[in-house]
Design a protein around this nucleic acid. Structure first.
Lengths: 282, 282
DNA sequence: AAATCAAATCCATATTGTGGACCTTTCCCT
DNA sequence: AGGGAAAGGTCCACAATATGGATTTGATTT
């Protein structure tokens, strides 16, 4: 297919189903506007696809039930099928459900906004945002938003929790995107922040992404030693000065401890094989 | 594309992205084996696709993160991206989360297995299965399983809760599939069962799908008057005789009442439009 | 009523997905 | 161990299918 405009040097991973990549990119794009909805024109702009292509993909995804279009506003939203798929996937990755009570407690105790972020390949994805009672709230990070690992407190906490060589490799692989779209985050800065986060035991973002929007984050480790995600709290600058920052970190660490305890079985592989033998026969 | 084998007379809905349809069908197929995993050969058999095609789609979906393949067993499972999408969709269709406590209570009180089913176009999809303590358990209905509306107690409850003309239309539209794949469910039987369910106030399935696996179901109505889904309980025949059946129906109705009360805002359209104006501008 | 913007549609073109045939690995039975 | 079967994975010529510039339709604003 004729590549539209941007799109870097060449797709890394071996050739596959390109139209599928496009379609799923559109699906993710709509997902990242979850709750708000997104217009065709915005999809065109953000995906770099042409209008007919974007439109066709949106329509096809809608027909399959993965998207739903509001007839009045013409905005595209995630559809019921996406919900079904995700619900079933939740049986395997039930991390969010476990974390929701923690987020609620964090938001209540801190009065600021608490976030759950998970790693998804090279990026951190915000899965949930729980608002506190404090009247000044930032809308810098929404559910569905993705940034390269290290950009933002939760995302940075995850990066810092990974083995050194893996973290370094990820920074490397993200360098192109960082350079292109995150001028405030050169790889060198990320390395420094990761270093600091490891020493301090928590990630700290002093308004690096948006001036005035500060945040702290702590990683959640699974019982297999892998990083599952991170909890973070964002607030305005003067609510994240040293004393309060220490307090918020303590809150986060308490919740992380609770989460670590009630970590669910990670779907043991041997078990699955045995089940499969029995069940996939029909 | 060359149509493989089966596939009826002609696809009804207007031409779109066929390969996408196939890919999403594969995704749904894997989802329907959530937890268990599915093998390439089974995907080939159940989807009617050829092996290279199925394999390519599975690989592409895996690369995009929507599927994950267990390296040891080669079984395909839903991937983290599916979880992300579904989690975000959950903000719009948060029905399942609300229903989980009810299912837990139903399973505990009845000692049998409780299910949550929702409508998805022409089908009922089992979203969750909560097992009770009774030692004889049927595995007739798993999370992710789909059947035409009316097949199974939960599915039948949903069908019976719809307006008469709509229900009739759905039976009509399902008649082909019923005839081909559900020999025990001729449309005429469905109409009769729907009639009974409306009179009785609950759906009853006396082992129609699998002999010995009986079930009762009650629909959950949203506050907009639309049917949101259904709760159901399945048990072996002698645990669904008249007296106990009445008891179980009462349990179901209690939980349905609780669910109806704490129904969430159905994302009012006007509100969404207003938000969109503000938020999709950037 | 005119103008502006966005959404939806058309259609010739060649890029892309397709599947029969083939190879490789794993598992099981003797 | 050895041999056979079944499943997973790959190749490549072919044409069916997605593509996007241009156009039409529809809605909203001035």
């Amino acid at each position: 297919m004729r590549r539209a405009k941007e799109a870097g040097p060449a797709r890394q991973e071996g050739g596959g189903t390109q139209s599928l990549q496009r379609a799923l990119a559109v699906l993710r794009l709509v997902a990242s506007h979850s709750g708000r909805g997104i217009r065709l024109a915005d999809v065109v702009e953000r995906s770099g696809l042409t209008k007919p292509t974007a439109h066709r993909l949106l329509q096809a995804l809608e027909q399959e039930g993965f998207l739903a279009q509001d007839v009045a506003s013409r905005l595209y939203h995630l559809g019921p099928e996406a919900y079904v798929i995700g619900t079933l996937a939740g049986d395997r990755y039930g991390f969010r459900r476990a974390a929701l009570p923690s987020l609620a407690r964090l938001a209540a105790a801190s009065e600021d906004t608490a976030f759950l972020t998970i790693r998804r390949d090279l990026h951190g994805v915000c899965l949930h945002r729980e608002e506190g009672s404090f009247p000044i709230r930032s809308y810098v990070l929404q559910a569905g938003d993705r940034h390269p690992l290290g950009v933002g407190a939760g995302s940075l906490a995850i990066l810092a929790a990974l083995p050194c060589d893996e973290a370094e490799e990820l920074i490397e692989r993200n360098s192109e995107e960082l350079q292109a779209r995150y001028p405030g985050f050169p790889p060198s800065l990320l390395r420094q922040r990761v270093e600091e986060a490891r020493i301090e035991g928590h990630a700290f973002n002093p308004g690096q992404l948006y001036a005035g929007s500060w945040a702290v984050g702590v990683a959640v480790m699974g019982r297999n030693g892998q990083c599952e995600g991170a909890l973070s709290i964002a607030a305005i600058e003067n609510r994240l000065q040293p004393d309060r920052r220490t307090y918020l970190v303590r809150l986060l660490q308490q919740e992380v401890a609770k989460l670590t305890e009630l970590q669910e079985r990670p779907a043991g592989a041997t078990n699955i094989v045995a089940q499969a033998r029995r069940l996939t026969a029909n």
